[in-house]
Amino acid sequence: MKRLFALNRWLGWLTLSLLAAALWLVFTAPLDYQQGNSVRILYMHVPSAKMALFVYIALTVFSAWHLWKKSETADILAEASAPVGAAFALVTLVSGSIWGKPMWGTWWAWDARLTSMLVLLILYMGIIALRNGIDDPIKGGRATAILAIFGAIDLPIIHFSVSWWRTLHQPPSFGQASTGSTITGPLLPPLVWMSVAFIFLGTYLVILKAREIRGRRILENLETERTSHA
């Protein structure tokens, strides 16, 4: 794990330069003839949304790994993933809302994508709260891992049931607009660059958080060792 932390310094610089390049592209790209300036919101919104989901997948994998192999590394990585994923989900929701106001004329619509993202954010907060709420770190780690796996099973069901519910009630008028699948041609490169930069950003942040959490655990062990000898 220490080697990973040493590597992360380089990853940080790489992320920073990728982000700078992507942002330069974002603000020099030609404007969409329909959406104008507002398409730039999507360059932040879409990669954040992808990362919010991607980090959850990683969290599920770490959780399963922790349950299966009782690996502390996996537990630390799982603990580190939750706040990072929550940050991505939060930016996704707020940027989507800010984009929705000029485009749809409303801040919020209960479509499948927004609803699942909201549930994802609540789930991240629940995972963080559960771990903070349990004093025994071993029990807390295990409970959190099981919760994360159940959340992973539940999220597709939620997405499916909400989209089904909405399509039965009203035509999915917004459906595709928020995915970025309408972004084509000259608008595509900034999106691709931002997405790649965000994959690095997510990895960097998770490893950074992992370093913090590992340090905190080592420190706690040292301090209890000291008080038990006193």
Partner: peptide, 12 residues
């Protein structure tokens, strides 16, 4: 905590 965890998961 129980309510916070249960409510979103049972929304479907």
């Amino acid at each position: 905590l129980l309510a916070l965890l249960l409510l979103p998961l049972v929304s479907p």
